[in-house]
């Protein structure tokens, strides 16, 4: 092999890890389902990934970092954020509330060494793609009618059971 070929090969080998790092830092991330990340965690361990989903539950700020869980319909995944990034999230999903739709890009860990082996994503960027909303929950008249029916049934039976002329049972003692 001539010297030029050896030089090119050496350059390629030395540049390869750098290119991996650069790809992770600035290259296009892989947009994935949380299910894919959970079930094939080893494959994506340490890679920059992108997930999109609803911010749910609580925004937990502590020790100079913040946690939020993102639900994409299959699984919810914990995302570690900088406090400044966390401030972008305004609405968290719960009963009668659809949380902010969030697109998170960051490094995925199958077993994060900094967080006790949790499967998590350390966010580089957080983008709110759709703000959260509240969901109206008007009283369902069918539920009200059913409840009224059973209230009347229970009241009638209790009235019969507790009728005032009813004899009192004698008291006995357990062994």
């Amino acid at each position: 092999m001539d010297k030029r070929a050896i030089l090119v090969l050496t350059l390629l080998i030395s540049v390869f890890p750098v290119s991996r790092v650069l790809a992770n830092a600035v290259g296009p991330a892989i947009t994935l389902q949380a299910k894919e990340l959970v079930e094939k965690a080893s494959r994506y361990d340490g890679q920059v990934v992108e997930i999109a989903g609803e911010a749910i539950g609580d925004l937990m700020q502590r020790d100079g970092e913040a946690w939020v869980n993102i639900l994409d319909g299959s699984y919810a995944i914990g995302v570690r954020l900088e406090p400044a990034q966390a401030r972008a999230i305004r609405t968290l999903g719960g009963y009668r509330v659809v949380g902010d739709q969030v697109k998170v890009r960051g490094t995925f860990h199958r077993a994060c060494p900094a967080h006790g082996g949790d499967l998590d994503i350390h966010a580089d960027t957080v983008e709110i793609t759709r703000p959260g909303t509240s969901v109206p929950d008007p009283i369902d008249p069918r539920k009200a009618a059913l409840a009224l029916f059973w209230v009347l049934c229970a009241a009638a039976l209790m009235l019969i059971y507790y009728r005032p002329w009813r004899p009192k049972p004698p008291k006995t003692v357990a062994p």
Binding site: Y95, D137, I139, D140, K143, A144, L146, A147, W150, V151, C153, A154, L157, M158, I160, Y161
Partner: peptide, 25 residues
């Protein structure tokens, strides 16, 4: 203020009371 859920529990509780008192009677 979860009123639909409250109605579910009214139904569940009163149905249970009805079954319970029907058995007792």
């Amino acid at each position: 203020a979860e009123f639909n859920s409250a109605l579910d529990f009214v139904t569940g509780a009163c149905l249970s009371l009805a079954v319970g008192y029907a058995l007792l009677l």
